[in-house]
């Protein structure tokens, strides 16, 4: 819970606005780069291959940093990867993204809230 002398107020609103400006600069960084960068031959390859790599890194980096923080639970990771693999299989079979997501959430709920509900607090320690 927020401490009694918590920061919520006009100062917090200013903090959010400044933070949003920071995020904006980070997201827009490539737009401010010189034109020569756009003609860089490697950019085409990066455009194709970097997105998939970064998506994979969302998972890998979160696992590594969670392990370094000592909150990594191998069996939780194993179960969640199994659920994701089942979900990907359903997606490849039916090509229905929404159904796949709903299935993944339902499976996760059944497994962690009923099958292993006693370990609920660790269930999301690795997710990006």
């Amino acid at each position: 819970m927020i401490p009694d002398e918590g920061p919520l107020g006009w100062g917090f609103l200013a903090f959010l606005l400044i933070g949003a400006a920071g995020v904006f600069v980070q997201r827009g960084a490539p737009y401010f780069l010189p034109r020569a960068v756009m003609d860089w031959p490697v950019l085409g390859t990066l455009n194709r291959l970097l997105p998939g790599t970064l998506i994979l890194l969302f998972f890998l980096v979160s696992w590594v940093t969670q392990a370094q923080a000592g909150v990594f639970k191998a069996w939780v990771l194993g179960v969640e990867i199994a659920i994701l693999l089942v979900s990907v299989g359903i997606h490849l079979l039916l090509r229905q993204v929404l159904l796949t997501i709903a299935t993944a959430v339902a499976l996760h709920y059944v497994v962690f809230h009923h099958a292993v509900g006693w370990f609920l607090e660790t269930a999301f320690s690795w997710s990006p």
């Binding site: 998506i55 998972f59 994701l84 993944a104 959430v105 999301f124 990006p128």
Partner: peptide, 20 residues
Amino acid sequence: IDSFAFALSALFAILLTEQI
């Protein structure tokens, strides 16, 4: 209901599959 947050992981898994 913490399982709602897992939707994002499922979405990432799908997007990674589609990228490949």
